[in-house]
Design a protein around this nucleic acid. Structure first.
Lengths: 153, 153
DNA sequence: CACATACCCATTGACGCCCATATAATCCCA
DNA sequence: TGGGATTATATGGGCGTCAATGGGTATGTG
């Protein structure tokens, strides 16, 4: 399974280490299993993460913008300087930078939420609340949930 | 990882030396790990830097501008004539030329901002302010941001 | 000789690597 | 199919290594 799915709650130890859920590690490409990228979510007080391959894809896209335009700078600055890479140790743990932790309000425990091609890290209580809210919104608006779920490839 | 990502704040010592962040050193091609080029950013009071190999890419970009335009001359002159090369010592430190330092208003501390294929060096406070402004501008016209960030594969 | 720069060595703190344990999941065999 | 044995995952802690920083000395160029 090369997708990030399900949710997990892991503890952050005294050294600041936290285990990346095993199934998430397996979702990373075999090539780069010991490095992930993290960045502040744009739409919520959470951290988003994924494998480095995705970053290279983004780099390619930005590189295609007009080199001397303001957009180029904005993207380049907002994305590359805000992204951090962290290494995963042999036990499958990694460090969440202080700045990101405080952005998400994470202290002693981190909640991992699979999002398909990437995942989110939340302060546990906030994360649960968020899933509840977004599920409710989805059902109320009877959005295309049914369509999405029943659509055949 | 062969990209310059994340941000770092390093001190400049009495001799004017400053450490190039470790991950930035690793982003340089193994061939030329002890030399980088620096030049004044055209669009902001900051210094831009990269490995010597990147020069060709810059040349190509400038070459793609209309040869008879003012831009061509301006960019060509402003960038190429201002480029300096500096050596990195065994501890990973280098010297920022006085002219560049004063251009960026850097005194005792330098902020390194990854920009993918190159990086910027800012006076810390100004650099942080710049990323903030950049991010705001992107979020306001959130048109293309989403495309760049969320497009799959 | 004065100044700038490169090389060498030292210190501190952070991080990675290794080993250990407990709980949970899986397997194997009678 | 039950139960013990094996493996995997999450977690804790010791310790060596490396990055960032400071400073002393040699080399060099005007």
């Amino acid at each position: 399974m090369d997708l990030f799915v399900s949710k997990f709650f892991n503890k952050i130890d005294k050294k600041g280490r936290v285990s990346l859920p095993s199934s998430f590690r397996n979702a990373l490409p075999k090539a780069n299993r010991n490095e992930i990228i993290l960045y502040k979510s744009i739409k919520s007080p959470s951290i988003e993460g994924c494998g480095v391959g995705r970053l290279k894809e983004i780099a390619k896209r930005i590189n295609n913008l007009d080199f001397f335009s303001e957009d180029y700078d904005d993207f380049s600055t907002s994305i590359f300087s805000e992204i951090v890479t962290t290494n995963i140790d042999k036990e499958g743990r990694f460090l969440i930078p202080e700045e990101l932790k405080s952005y998400a309000g994470i202290k002693t425990e981190a909640a991992f939420f699979g999002q398909g091609h990437f995942f989110q890290i939340w302060e546990p209580a906030q994360g649960l609340k968020n899933t509840e809210v977004s599920r409710k919104r989805l059902l109320e608006e009877k959005k295309s949930l049914r369509i999405i779920l029943t659509q055949q490839k």
